[in-house]
Design a protein around this nucleic acid. Sequence first.
DNA 1: GCGACAG
DNA 2: ATCTTGTCGC
Length: 232
Amino acid sequence: MNPTPSMPVPPPWDGDVARARALQLELAAAVRLRDDYPPLRRLAGVDVGFEDGGAITRAAAVLLDARTLAPLAERVARLPTRMPYIPGLLSFRELPAVLEALGALPETPDLVFVDGQGIAHPRGLGIAAHLGVITGLPAIGVAKKILVGTHGEVGPRRGDRVELRYRGKVVGAVLRSKEKVRPLVVSPGHRVGLESAPELVLACCTRYRLPEPTRLADRIASRRDRGGSLFP
DNA sequence: GCGACAG
DNA sequence: ATCTTGTCGC
């Protein structure tokens, strides 16, 4: 992704929870849930970790070949942490660092996988949806736990899934990405449909619970990369 | 009023 | 998310 001139970022945290929530409602209105992504050539995965007991926010972005899922580039961004974790306002805490790492990638991805919720959120704007609306890029949220919503039992086989409902609406899917592991919570972030999101995530799940884009970003963001880059 | 609550 | 080693189960 080239030096992007005007990529709007969340305003500095001022402690005003009510205003942040109001902004989420505005941005949620811009979310598009229709499949509208280009032929997939490049994928990206982003995730966040912390250093100094939370003082530093460390974001990682990984670029992958969509066909082979092989990593092509990785970027890390470190920023002073501006606000505490508040359920429902996660994106305001993590997005600044994520956008910096994403913007530093050598190419603009066709689709971004984000560790967290898409529209499966109290106001329809989880971090994946927030990122999508702000960057204009197609995005999907892949979370390890539910924030809101309910669902029936999920089958035991890879690929089995059930709808995630919130306030009478389908907002995502609970997907078994691999046998004998807890299912993932998948929800569209932007420019991706409710049916396509789980399909795209599953296509990126090889031998682990998490899809490659998010799994690789997670390794780097959480300092588990064991000494260095993905390219030995 | 009492829980629940992505990372 | 993070603090943290070995250990039990598939």
